[in-house]
Amino acid sequence: MMDVSPTIFIVDDDPSARSGLERLIKAAGYAAVSYSSASAFLEENLGNRHGCLLLDCNMPGISGPQLQEELFNLNCPIPIVFISAFGDVPTTANTMKKGAVDFLTKPVDSEDLMNAIQSALDTDLARFAMEREIESLQVLLDSLTKREYQVMTYVITGLLNKQIAWELEITEDTVKIHRHRVMKKLKLESVAELVRFCMKAGVKPAETRDTY
């Protein structure tokens, strides 16, 4: 699956730390690229590159946590290992809550660093695997007609055919036909499977009239 080797992106304003970290990571056999500021990293417009981000907390201009926020907003969920010269608890907690893989304190031991990087790369791999799966599910979903998709969103809410028919103001038989086609196109056997599929694919259940 991993046809492109991962890169460790280092963003740190301090030249000493940046240089040392880059050398260590390269020595450990990873590809590493370092940037002196968050904006320089953003300018590269890396898209969905494999790898992880080794991010310093305190930097002039855009700080580490701000970059994390920015990447989230850009829908670029690259795993981040924070590395701070002096991490306070609130900052640490905040970044971890927002999905940081780890929060390391400078000076960092190579073993801890490598563990964190490995963990981040694993996350990255899982992320890519997930993305691929979602992509394939999406292909299947794309084969559904608009009406079939609509019926499916009602099915996963747990409504009976009769109820779906009432909701969509169609006959129960029509619902049955659509439902059958959905199961066939998505290659699924049971409603439970359909529900799981939809969760993975990010399909949201329909909003039903709350007259029940």
Partner: peptide
């Protein structure tokens, strides 16, 4: 701490890199 840990990071990382290499 921040100020001091920067060069320390450089030192430690470089030393460990050298050791690894």
């Amino acid at each position: 701490a921040h100020e001091l840990n920067q060069p320390l990071t450089g030192i430690l990382s470089n030393a460990q890199a050298a050791e690894l290499l």
